[in-house]
Simulated scan of single mutants.
Amino acid sequence: MRILFIPGNSPSPIFSHAALAYAARGAGHEVVVGGIEWVVPDIAAIGLTPLTIAPVTGADVAEFMGNAPADPAEQAVAVGRIYADIALRSQPALLDLAAQWRPDLVVGGSMFYSAPLLAHTLGVPSVRLEWDRTDSAIYAPGARDVLAPELERRGLDAVPDPDLWIDICPPDLRTPGQEAGRQPMRWLPVNPQRPLEPWMYTKGDRPRVYITAGARVPDPRALVHMARGVADLGVEVVIGVAEHVAAEVRGDLPEAHVGWAPLDVVAPTCDVILHHGGGVTDMASLRAGVPQLIVEQDVSADAMRRLADYGAGLLLEPGAQRTEDIAAACGRILADPAYGDRARALSEQMAALPSPAEVVGLLEKLAR
């Protein structure tokens, strides 16, 4: 069987879809992963076969994000428009591939409209695989107007529904009715690796706080202030950032571990993971059973609020995200073992879900 994955327009969906892609390839199936120019190196870096489907570069993405509205609702509309535009622009490259390498199944991300459009054209089943816990319906208003002429041309009223919908959310964090019609699957971490150093997998004698902004390019000064405030709690600080940002931070934080490290290795050694509400960071924290402290969240706020309501972390609302607020919230999590207990409960729920290898069997039945 040939399976085409089209996860999304950033590294995070690529990494989140990889476990199912590996499982399919391990079962003997052919796998190709499509992505915009920016993420093609990330696809190759984790050992999957990449296909460039649109000439959208990292500079293009940075320009878009730099000009994106600050308001989360407006930002979601803007993101929906750009994703829909890329979906339309990607169809020629995808059809060129299908002319020689026709997929039996197309797997797409939660808001990557390329996959269902291609599957409809080819007459093959489509699968929607969620890559995080954010409800992608918030992007639909922006995508609707962009996609409308193409959908009308195809005789469609809306983007076709998937033939199989795979969800990776722990049961207790789902919204009411979310499980209806969806196939649960255990989320497994995948990310580029580097040679390990002992500190990455060793837990020291002090609590460890991991700080990251995910794939974003954070303000180095904000990282320094945040880390200093947290360090005053007597904890060990690890800052996960790209090397070009790390070089600006290390001199101000000589006692911290600063730089890129594989989160799947580091997360289980942490006592708190402090981040911006990024989907893969959230899922890696959940799998490791580590409480989260979320600041500077945007479109993911509702998903992160469910985590906080469950008691597995804290969400700092706008206006309460000063350095002292962050340090106080971090101290609160460290002082109360209930946060860790709730985080571990979610980890156990995730571990009990069907594995990607089990879900491959469903893909095989669907393609037949």
Rank of each mutant, 00 (worst) to 15 (best):
V32A: 14
P72E: 10
I3H: 07
D219G: 08
R89I: 06
D71W: 04
V77Q: 13
M200S: 09
L95F: 09
V79A: 12
W260E: 05
W199G: 04
D85E: 14
S90V: 08
H120V: 08
M304Q: 14
A45S: 07
G109C: 07
G142F: 15
I326R: 03
A328G: 04
M304K: 05
A335N: 03
D161G: 15
G204A: 15
A23N: 09
G311P: 05
A180Q: 13
A312I: 04
G108F: 12
I294L: 03
V31I: 13
I36P: 05
P69Q: 11
D85C: 02
A213W: 08
F112L: 07
P268G: 01
D60I: 10
G340F: 07
E179C: 08
A93P: 04
L188P: 06
A303K: 00
F5T: 10
F112D: 14
V295H: 03
Y113H: 15
V272D: 03
R342E: 01
G108Y: 15
G340D: 00
E152T: 15
E236N: 04
V266K: 02
D135E: 15
L366C: 02
A137F: 10
A303R: 01
L117F: 13
I86L: 13
G361E: 11
A343N: 04
A143V: 05
P11D: 05
T323P: 02
L314K: 06
R208G: 03
A328M: 03
R342C: 01
P176T: 11
G229Q: 09
V146C: 14
G229W: 01
A267Y: 00
G340T: 06
A213I: 06
A24M: 03
P72T: 02
L314P: 05
L51K: 03
R221G: 08
G123A: 13
P116H: 10
A213F: 11
F112T: 15
A261E: 02
L362G: 01
G340Q: 05
S355I: 00
F15S: 04
K203E: 06
V40T: 13
S110A: 15
P11W: 11
I138T: 12
T49M: 06
G28E: 02
A246M: 00
L94C: 06
H244M: 08
R128D: 08
G58V: 08
D219I: 07
G311Y: 06
G340P: 03
N9A: 12
I168T: 09
A246Q: 03
A227D: 05
V40E: 00
A19W: 12
V230P: 04
W101A: 07
P220E: 03
H276F: 11
V224P: 08
R186V: 07
A351I: 04
D132V: 08
R206I: 07
L315G: 02
D264L: 03
V272W: 08
H276W: 07
A84T: 09
P198L: 10
S10Q: 10
A27K: 14
V241M: 01
D161K: 15
H257T: 01
